[in-house]
Design a protein around this nucleic acid. Structure first.
Lengths: 129, 129
DNA sequence: CGCCTTTATAACCACCGTCTGATATTGTTG
DNA sequence: CAACAATATCAGACGGTGGTTATAAAGGCG
């Protein structure tokens, strides 16, 4: 699962935001998220699981509590994806279109970049990262 | 709809990547995406509509063709969201956890930041941007 | 005008992500 | 050990997303 897929959910984004300020217990995260989004404890727990299993958080037990912390590695993946577009917003958009058009006339045959997650069919249940 | 929601789909991400190299017609985008993802022309068109309606692309008619270009403004939104996490991956992770814990002990009562998109219920169909 | 191409839209639908209430698991305390 | 707290997991429901085929709309050409 791609980092964007994980963060394409507002609850999970919010959890990452909360954890950015520092380690929190599942319950603390839950209290806030339950209030803000109006979902149940198991609902929150499922989102925590997605984050955990996709490397966005680390978790350590402290008694009955589970302390979650953000793991920034997958976020770096997003940052890299965005690199190509950073130059875009430092320039005028119409002037950029012209430059892009020029750059496009000498288009590279193979940019050597792997395209975004490719799926044959959503129905196949092909979820790869 | 939040920028992450839009890009939380691999087809739409791919389309943005394609357009980053320069303006393309809907058909050109379609040919690539249909081959890579194995979806139909209307399927591609629907994704283009989502991108268009959420400000990720501009479109201009050229005869029967529609030329799409990337509009980077919403991507900037992502970049801002990521700012907070950039410092994370420039440091050792365990040392960072310690610092975060310290910073957490003097937690601000109100960070003044709007939380991620808040929904009452997914069932309510509350999709706001 | 008819014919063709391009591409958007309409109408429909399957499935999977996200939700729920119930329950299991983990840990602590008296 | 029982009781409690914290939280993960289970089993099932369901609606929205992302897909389809058919068709409409827009434009160009002979």
């Amino acid at each position: 699962m791609h980092a964007f897929d994980v963060l394409g959910d507002p609850v999970r984004r919010r959890i990452i935001e909360l954890l950015a300020d520092g380690e929190m217990s599942a319950g603390e995260v839950g209290a806030i998220v339950q209030r803000e989004f109006g979902i149940s404890q198991p609902g929150v727990s499922q989102h925590l699981r997605v984050l955990r299993e996709n490397g966005f958080t680390t978790v350590r037990p402290q008694g009955t509590r589970r302390l979650y912390a953000v793991d920034p590695a997958p976020l770096q993946e997003l940052d890299h994806w965005l690199e190509r577009y950073r130059s875009f917003w430092n320039q005028r958009l119409d002037a950029l279109s012209t430059e892009i058009a020029r750059g496009r006339s000498r288009r590279r045959p193979d940019s050597g970049e792997s395209p975004s997650d490719r799926r044959t069919r959503r129905r196949s249940g092909g979820t790869d990262g």
